[in-house]
């Protein structure tokens, strides 16, 4: 008991209070300046927008992948299942340089888009691709077990009542999967907001255009501007905490009825 408390205090609680204290001790001027710095605002807006875009793409793609893995038997299913965890297993700097190499105009994927006049690397599109990479496993791994546990007889009941497969999916299966899908998407979103390693290489980091919020923290630190760095950090924390809270509230409304497996 004592060991646990001491570790948690020194390793988590004290550092966190350092963040809060740094902001509290700073003059309100400095806080406002840091919070409203146009470069920071642009970075936060980009992080939020790109994370949202990635999350909304992750949801249908993740659902499709989770559905395939949970419901169907096909050659290579086990391999596909194992591949989902790649973003968890690779250090972010490794995935960062790999994604950049792929999406650069000379890369395997980037080259395909050159004739279309689309640049992937060093643009916002590249940032979204990197966030898709880090976010997808969150959606798949949250939704997959729920799909695996969908009772078979409920589907059969829908069919016996005359529902087409599409009707059964939309009216019966999707509502059961929706809470998990929302959770997974939110986890991907929250993770994306703070994502650094897989993004910095592909982003190009141009001020006001392709600079993400975590990079602002680093930039402030390089200037020994601890207050500004702390303010950006607090903004990021508030955004992701708010997001998780909001989804929790919505979820509670959605699942208040489905507590037992009727």
């Amino acid at each position: 008991m004592a060991v646990t408390s001491v570790v948690l205090l020194t390793l988590v609680a004290v550092p966190l209070s350092a963040l809060v204290l740094t902001v509290l001790r700073a003059s309100s001027d400095a806080i406002v300046r840091a919070a409203t710095d146009p470069r920071t605002l642009a970075a936060c807006a980009l992080s939020f927008g790109a994370s949202a875009a990635a999350a909304f793409l992750c949801a249908p793609l993740g659902l499709a992948v989770a559905w395939s893995l949970a419901r169907w038997d096909f050659p290579g299913r086990r391999v596909l299942d194992a591949l989902i965890d790649i973003p968890f297993a690779l250090p972010t700097s490794v995935s960062g340089i790999a994604l950049t190499a792929l999406c650069a105009p000379t890369g395997w994927v980037g080259a395909c888009f050159v004739p279309l006049g689309i640049d992937l690397a060093f643009t916002r599109v590249g940032i979204v691709i990197a966030l898709l990479f880090t976010g997808l496993p969150f959606v798949v791994r949250t939704v997959q077990p729920v799909i695996e546990d969908l009772p078979r007889d409920v589907e059969e009941a829908a069919a016996s009542l005359g529902a087409s497969p599409a009707q059964a999916f939309r009216r019966v299966l999707l509502p059961s999967v929706l809470p998990a899908l929302m959770t997974g998407t939110t986890l991907a979103f929250a993770r994306s907001l703070g994502e650094y390693g897989s993004v910095v290489f592909i982003a190009g980091n141009m001020p006001m255009r392709t600079e993400v919020a975590p990079l602002r923290v680093l930039a402030h630190l390089e200037n020994y501007d601890y207050v500004s760095a702390a303010v950006v950090a607090v903004e990021m924390l508030v955004a992701s905490a708010g997001l998780l809270l909001a989804v929790n509230l919505v979820q509670r409304r959605l699942v208040h009825r489905g507590t037992s497996n009727a």
Binding site: V154, G258, A262
Partner: peptide, 9 residues
């Protein structure tokens, strides 16, 4: 069905 198979949502 034996276990009712009601639509819980």
């Amino acid at each position: 069905f034996q276990h009712y198979a009601l639509f819980r949502e």
